[in-house]
Design a protein around this nucleic acid. Sequence first.
DNA 1: CTGGAAATTGACAGTCACTATCAGAAACCC
DNA 2: GGGTTTCTGATAGTGACTGTCAATTTCCAG
Lengths: 204, 204
Amino acid sequence: MSTTRSAEDPAARAPGLRERKKARTRFEIQQEALRLFAEKGYAATTVEQIAEAADVSPSTFFRYFPTKAAVVLTDDFDPIFIETFRTQPPEIAVVPAIRAALRHTFGDMPADQAAAAAERNELMLSEPELRAAFAEFLISSTRLLLEMVAERAGRTVEDPEAIAVSGAIMGVILSALVLSGRSLEEKIDELDRQLQRLETGFRL
Amino acid sequence: MSTTRSAEDPAARAPGLRERKKARTRFEIQQEALRLFAEKGYAATTVEQIAEAADVSPSTFFRYFPTKAAVVLTDDFDPIFIETFRTQPPEIAVVPAIRAALRHTFGDMPADQAAAAAERNELMLSEPELRAAFAEFLISSTRLLLEMVAERAGRTVEDPEAIAVSGAIMGVILSALVLSGRSLEEKIDELDRQLQRLETGFRL
DNA sequence: CTGGAAATTGACAGTCACTATCAGAAACCC
DNA sequence: GGGTTTCTGATAGTGACTGTCAATTTCCAG
């Protein structure tokens, strides 16, 4: 059996070689793609070039990412955010719970991850093609948010007030992301204050 | 100066044959495209088929519409809405002014236009490709809304509160459009009530 | 009304994102 | 090691979109 190294080997701890290789390939593709995008621009980079840089075939690229845009839009924060929101004490209202979840998810983010997120965010908004794909994300997120809101408030997903508040929250988030010209950190702070206004109403 | 009354002639009032032909071709293409989309679905309809149905070459199609999606997204209501909003009495606050403008723009819409708008709306949300293009529209609309809000409220476009309220309004509109499963007319009514909640704050 | 300038058009060739298929290689399980 | 499953690359497509260029159509001046 083990003429070679034992179970302590960090390469052997993962759920299997296949899984590890997949994760590694996926990461590699994304890494190279983002590098090329930053280097030559999104539109000027072809999938073939990404595949070549990541040392896979174009076919393989599409097995890992359904579209060229997905390589930019793939985001690991959603599940964390959702979980945090769900585990807020039930007596807290929707908007405060959202605020708490946002603070928790994005508040103490490692610097390198924050930088990467900011970069992808910028890319997402500057490239028309990606802005388009962003809509997909936006709409599905709004749907998801509505479900979470309804669950917490004890309403159905058809409830007009639940729909309105979900939309308003998403709109505030979107506008903070798109319109506010600040750093990601400042945006999070600002976002918190803006959401607070949803609770009290706007006086403009 | 009028020896002839030709200026009244509806056919001669137009800026020239070239212009008229262009407008007519444009209308023809859009007409045929929407018919084919309704008939066979958006994805299943190729530009070549649209071009053939409209009796032009594929090249010509792309000279009139930058993308296949643009043929669906072309919209004539924005300018009306903007004008109505701008001409609201200045003492009225932002949200009520939006509500008034929405009611005026979409409230007394002719039945056939409403039907066409509803159809395009449905198409826009059901087809992934179009939903993507919808984002373009969404983001630019939010920017525009921010400008209008800032103007009315005497704030700059960097003002956080102006940003927040613009986003919230847009979010409420979006969610009403996307999430609420009603007819267009009902949606407008519902939208009015949902916007009202923005003024008073949410209690969920 | 006519000749030339300018705009519009269609044909053609090409790029690129994305899909379907299929045979071979790698990893899994025994 | 043998049999099964999964992953991969090569190939050949489809369809949206772009660039070019010559032919046609509309415009306008004389």
